[in-house]
Design a protein around this nucleic acid. Structure first.
Lengths: 217, 217
DNA sequence: ATTGAGAATACTGTATACAGTATACTACCA
DNA sequence: TGGTAGTATACTGTATACAGTATTCTCAAT
């Protein structure tokens, strides 16, 4: 049997709607001021409200949207306390990931991560968005390397949240080459095999990002 | 004006359905074999499919249910690898929580946690369910004490998952008084103020639970 | 007894219709 | 001009209706 299964697992409208709205939030077509109304979206997409509702509720549950009484949904804004907690959660997840990788002590994984970092650093365009994507993809690769689906899910949850698109990315204040170099020394720490040291390094790295972020507010 | 606000934030049917199904899974009224069909539930609840769908999709997203083609949803079963990852994720979340608490070094919090543990230990009935609840509530209190909403959310996500109701609770093999005593020494470790030591203690404690669990499989 | 065609069934996903309620709008009265 | 009553509007949540598609079932043919 050389045929690929034709059964398309699911091409639900709700999924497509989800992706598109997500994209719209990312590129700023939907701002934090905008009200997000089911009927409006249904009109735009030229489908019924049902799949829209589904996508919207999903985003609410993920903490990306919040509902504003009868005024529909809106993008969830994070206050300063919540942003701090976010960085705390990142420390927990990504710090633990670093620890686990160090304890696992797999050279091949480290090599792969290094390659990944080099590739991510090699940005063609020098925009905030590009830097954000590169940074995210590096951090994600580290969590991914633990092969722990839960951690990866939590990682994505955090990074998708609210306006975190712009969060974590106050590039205007950051020395690009330094930041990216930091990632390599993160792998160094992992490679030594000392779990706690690796975790600490990661936590400090995230803390640096937080300082930068907070200064930008 | 002596009247209490009547505005009930939201009493959506979907929420009630969610709670009830959750409860049914917990107490075993719905088993992993059962197919969960929207229409059937709608009949039982005597409401339309719409709120049922919403609740079901929410549970799917939380990883509690999975959909089985046209056969509706079913309870998601975890394979051994996934269970291991689950414990890994617990180590990350709860270990980090212990570290954070230790670093914060708040005596009052520790005292409150001790009180909580004593209270939780004081079980009236000696069932698996009671032990599970007590254990969960103790661990949850520790995460709660970090006042980090993300960590708490992730904690709940893990503990609500799949058949984790019975997971984490292989009481038949466990020495109750020892296990519960362990919790106190966990607080001891936190109280010393050494973040890494506290994290390690928590991770070991969780590891013990895992060993127990795996033996039971 | 097995196989295959065709119909019946049992689901889902999507669209539409309806009812209720908070907000916005208007016009009247002080 | 300010405030209030009454009405229109703009939303949501829920119910219902419809279409499509796997699955299961039935039954005849080999």
């Amino acid at each position: 049997m050389a045929f690929k299964s034709l059964s398309q697992p699911r091409i639900r409208l709700a999924d497509q709607v989800y992706d598109q709205i997500m994209q719209a939030i990312r590129d700023g077509s939907i701002s934090t001021e905008d009200r997000i109304v089911q009927e409006k979206l249904a009109d735009e997409f030229e489908i019924s409200r049902t799949p829209i509702r589904e996508a919207l509720f999903r985003m609410e549950q993920e903490g990306i949207l919040e509902l504003a009484g009868r005024g529909g949904f809106r993008i969830r804004k994070l206050d300063e306390a919540e942003i701090a907690e976010m960085y705390g959660a990142r420390s927990a997840i990504e710090g633990s990931a670093a620890r686990m990788l160090a304890e696992a002590g797999d050279k091949a994984t480290c090599a792969a991560l290094r390659a990944r970092i080099t590739r991510a650093e090699d940005m063609t365009e020098n925009t905030v968005q590009a830097y954000f994507d590169a940074n995210r993809s590096i951090h994600r690769a580290i969590v991914e390397a633990t092969r722990n689906r839960f951690l990866l899910e939590f990682f994505d949850n955090i990074w998708n949240r609210g306006s975190s698109f712009t969060l974590f990315a106050s590039i205007q204040f950051v020395d690009l080459s330094k930041s990216l170099g930091d990632h390599m020394s993160l792998i160094d720490a992992i490679e030594t095999g000392d779990g706690w040291a690796a975790a600490e390094k990661m936590i400090l790295h995230i803390h640096d990002g937080k300082e930068l972020q907070m200064r930008g507010l």
